[in-house]
């Protein structure tokens, strides 16, 4: 893909990123930070590609380390965010 197309995508993504979180109450800052944190765990895709193309053992070891770290970010991030949000559910169903 050419540079201009990539630049276009980047700039549009920046604006989307600004817009989606522009009006968030402080109540949700923590889950939002945690959710955004999980999303950048998608670096896992990059780590998998690099590991899949590794030609020598040293490269493979480092790439697999990246896969482990990225997976921890991705899986752990979504699980911990879900746990946080699970607690928000309870109080809406409360009797009071």
């Amino acid at each position: 893909m050419d540079g201009v197309a990539l630049l276009t995508i980047t700039v549009l993504a920046i604006f989307v990123g600004f817009e989606v979180v522009s009006k968030v109450s402080s109540t949700l800052h923590t889950p939002l930070m945690s959710g955004a944190n999980a999303i950048h765990g998608i670096i896992l895709v990059g780590a998998i590609i690099v590991a899949g193309q590794a030609a020598d053992a040293a490269t493979l070891v480092v790439a697999l380390l990246a896969v482990v770290l990225a997976t921890a970010n991705l899986v752990g991030g979504f699980v911990v965010t879900d746990r946080m949000l699970e607690m928000f559910r309870g109080r809406r169903g409360g009797a009071r």
Partner: peptide, 29 residues
């Protein structure tokens, strides 16, 4: 932002978009 830049390195649009989203929303947050 680091993930976004790695998207440029690998020519992977998903990494670019996801990383940029987090970079931008994280800055606002």
């Amino acid at each position: 932002l680091a993930v976004a830049a790695s998207g440029l390195v690998l020519g992977n649009v998903l990494l670019l978009v996801a990383g940029t989203l987090v970079g931008a929303s994280g800055t606002i947050l």
